[in-house]
Design a protein around this nucleic acid. Structure first.
Length: 418
RNA sequence: GUGAGUGUUGCCCAGAGGCCGAAGGCGCCAGGUUGUGGCCCUGGAGAACGAGGGUUCGAAUCCCUCCACUCACCCCA
């Protein structure tokens, strides 16, 4: 027997209510904020990701699904959403549209990781990107939008963490400061961290190892080494956040795992929950479009993991609307009844009424049992008696009222009941 | 890549060397009404107990190997 590959899951009909709910809320938020949907391919040139996400990151180093196709193109299943959207922005000349261009997406994301709670090899993200505007107003708006999205789902148990990691003007200086601070501490750090001092100093800050915690806690803070532009930007953002009454906490150790971020970075964390907890995150990436070959174009975005949202909704006991039940279940007995049932059903469907027709030769009892279990509001019963009269029996499954009606009348009767 | 746990019918799960040719619940199917659901009752189908090897007179139950899944670390959505 075949099984779904490791780290992948089937989202069965019984789960779909959560997914439809999330998608609907996401789309509502996007409409309110003026974002338009974009869909990009599930795989891209591998180089797109190595260049954007960064050579030194875990995602690129050990998590990408890379493969060569039959023409020897090196491709990768997308390990995140932003790079593809930026590629599409450039490829389709969206820099000629009024800026900023606001796009959202639902995408499956692939990372070769060890699966665990809330973490999969294929997962789904909803994300937004606002490309072509540098103002911190947009930062505030994007963050607000992310929070409004969670709130619209009924979620309340989460916090917002914020930081600024500077830009290419000020970050080199800050990294230098970090290195200087860490150099004498190196002997006491974990192996990973010793390597990070040279390779990726920013990552020193989010090491979870007990031995490195104290060092990270007392490390120089990026927000204290910002250039004037970055500082103004961060200050303005904080002002806007206060004006919007958005609560946040500054986390000096929040750095994010993708190299393209500049200035603002943020994460949404649930109040409690497992360690795979980040519900979403994002930040500004003012240099990315330029690095991909476009003219310098500032941008900001965020993404959320749908699997984690589903987990959270369940943990919080948040109810989602049930999926629509069929209006009519059509039971029939005998061969001529089958023909009438089929015809009647298509008539009703033409009128927009959902119908399930019992196929096969099961007893009426069995058919009605099924009508009950699929949650149909009505059963239409057709047998020899009805055929003789040219009528059908309409049974209300909720009240158990039953009447014999002309099939032509069904549409009218059912139409007004809905 | 590292560590821990688990692996019995579609699902949940009992079972701890012979009473297991595997129990129960849910679900499924059928019957209890000769054309009628939801409750109830009865019956039925469905598992050689992850795979392979070993110990033993005898293993779902003990040991080994492998595989899978889960959780945790790392990192992230």
């Amino acid at each position: 027997m075949f099984k779904a590959p490791r780290g992948t899951v089937d989202i069965l009909p019984g789960e779909q209510a959560y997914w439809r709910y999330i998608e609907e809320k996401a789309e509502t938020v996007c409409r309110l904020y003026g974002y338009q949907r974009v869909d990009t391919p599930a795989f891209e040139d591998a180089g797109l990701f190595t260049r954007s996400v960064g050579e030194g990151t875990d995602i690129v180093n050990k998590e990408m699904y890379i493969f060569k196709d039959r023409s020897d193109n090196e491709l990768a299943l997308r390990p995140e959403g932003t790079a593809s959207v930026c590629r599409a922005y450039l490829e389709h000349g969206m820099d000629n549209l009024p800026q900023p261009v606001k796009l959202y997406y639902f995408a499956d994301i692939f990372r070769y990781e060890r699966p665990q709670a809330g973490r999969y090899r294929q997962h789904h993200q909803f994300g937004c990107e606002a490309i072509g505007e540098a103002s911190p107003m947009l930062d505030a708006e994007v963050i607000q939008m992310a929070l409004e999205f969670f709130k619209s789902l009924g979620m309340t148990q989460f916090t917002l963490q914020l930081n600024s990691i500077g830009c290419k003007q000020c970050r080199p200086d800050y990294l230098q400061k970090l290195k200087e601070y860490y150099a004498p501490l190196a002997p006491g750090l974990c192996d990973d961290c010793r390597a990070r001092i040279v390779k990726n100093p920013l990552r020193l800050l989010d090491c979870k190892k007990p031995g490195c915690q104290a060092a990270a806690e007392a490390a120089p803070k990026s927000s204290e080494y910002l250039c004037e532009d970055c500082r103004d930007h961060f200050d303005a953002l904080k002002t806007y956040m206060e004006a919007l009454k958005i609560e946040y906490s500054i986390n000096h150790r929040l750095v994010r795992g993708l190299d393209y971020y500049t200035k603002t970075v943020f994460e949404v964390q649930p109040l409690e929950g497992g360690s795979q907890s980040a519900l979403g995150g994002g930040g500004r990436y003012d240099d990315l479009i330029g690095e991909l070959g476009g003219k310098p174009t500032p941008a900001i975005g965020f993404a959320t993991g749908l699997e984690r949202i589903v987990l959270n909704l369940k943990d919080q006991g948040i109810e989602v609307p049930e999926q629509k039940k069929p209006a009519v279940f059509m039971a029939c007995m005998g061969n001529s009844a089958k023909i009438v049932a089929l015809k009647t059903a298509s008539d009703l469907r033409e009128a927009g009424i959902s119908v399930i027709v019992a196929a096969g030769d099961r007893s009426l009892k069995a058919q009605l049992r099924q009508a009950n279990s699929v949650g149909a509001t009505y059963a239409v019963i057709i047998g020899d008696d009805e055929i003789k009269e040219g009528m059908v029996t309409l049974r209300n499954m909720v009240t158990s009222d039953q009447q014999v009606v002309d099939p032509e009348e069904l549409k009218r009767i059912l139409g007004t009941q809905e």
